[in-house]
Design a protein around this nucleic acid. Structure first.
Lengths: 103, 103
DNA sequence: TTCAATAGTTCACTATTACTGAACTATTGA
DNA sequence: TCAATAGTTCAGTAATAGTGAACTATTGAA
């Protein structure tokens, strides 16, 4: 079984967060997660039909390792939430600012 | 003679700006440019002794192509300014937010 | 004019990173 | 036990970053 890598709050870096959000698909995933407000499976959270599963999995890994999302296993699927509190504590207003622009 | 590529204001993308700022060295360059308030040569603007000239040149190219800085030739050196007005018009508060965090 | 110095760019090479199909793991339900 | 589902890992290829060396352009001096 796979154990997910989640950096602690202090280990979240600005460069890591920016790099993670610098991909349009990942930006959309985070927006989608926040709009929903609740946990979502990878498939639900990804507004990208036709994308390879492995690519999607990779995007979630990048978001996870940057500290942007928390992934937990629930049954056969993985539930994801944005680590809003951690990001806001570390980089106030960053998320809100970046995610606030129209597509 | 080399003509620099500067995207027009409308062509500046969020992904491009974030990707450009996702590198610690480039973030420091932009901070350094803004702190100075004035045009700076590449060498002046780069707080990175010992870095290869070609690497530095590449960082400036990335910043330029992302629309973050404007480069103009002045004598033997290139003068760089942050395109604050353009970035602020396109993505309000983004620069201030990202550059506001301590190193 | 010619030559050296200076500031950056471009090139070529290597090293790291991203995308994808295929194979694999883990869980659920029949 | 078997099939279906969700996602990860692997292996291969494609794209991108870092660097020294060679190149271009400008200035200033002999």
């Amino acid at each position: 079984m796979v154990q997910f890598v989640h950096p602690s709050r202090e280990d979240i870096t600005l460069a890591g967060v920016l790099a993670a959000l610098a991909d349009p698909m990942r930006l959309r995933i985070v927006k989608s997660l926040l709009a929903q407000g609740d946990c979502m499976s990878c498939a639900e959270a990804a507004p990208c039909p036709g994308m390879a599963k492995s690519t999607l999995s990779n995007h979630f890994r990048v978001l996870r390792e940057a500290g942007l999302i928390q992934t937990s296993k629930k049954g056969v699927e993985h539930r994801n939430v944005v680590r809003e509190a951690d990001i806001n504590a570390r980089f106030p207003k960053l998320l809100k600012t970046i995610l606030g622009y129209p597509e």
